[in-house]
Amino acid sequence: MKDLAREEQWSAWMRAAIGGDTHAYHRFLSSVAPHLRTMARRRCAQFGAPASEAEDIVQEVLLSIHLKRGTWDSSRPIAPWISTIIRNKLIDSLRRRGRHIDVPLDDVIAVLQVDEQAQAQERLDVDRILKTLKEPQRTIVQAISVEGSSVRETAGRVNMTEGAVRVALHRALKALLLTYREPMT
């Protein structure tokens, strides 16, 4: 059974991530994203919405998982936790786009268990997102997201402590979630 192994793997990565292991967290998010993409595309196709909209939803759900990761009780299985977040945010995100729908939790769990690799598409152009941020958040976000710098490297570049960069990054991520929730122009 693949999914049990996957769940163990996700739990292990998430536990390490909460302790500050950025590599484990990167693997975790990269592993979750394709499943989100499959779910979001399926729902968008149902409404005749473009697949590009699905990628917005993927990113919004990833941000929500990120900002609420402190609610996972690491002594509990990760699957019920993540499935519930995904389901709730999928519904919210679709609703905000004017598509009222119920997503059964079982559907979410089923897709989490399937291996599917949909290719990502670029969404929400970087400029628009960066414009909503103030300095030094903008430089920090650009360096880490586009250029793939670490917090330490970025701290050196913007002449801030690592702690200050972490705080700025965390605030930027909260602001980012609001950007996703603005009506699309």
Binding site: I18, T22, L29, E122, G148
Partner: peptide, 16 residues
């Protein structure tokens, strides 16, 4: 923003 770029961003904020 590409989803991969977003993931870069999120993973640097890993610690709770």
């Amino acid at each position: 923003m590409k989803t991969d770029e977003l993931i870069n961003l999120l993973s640097q904020d890993s610690a709770v």
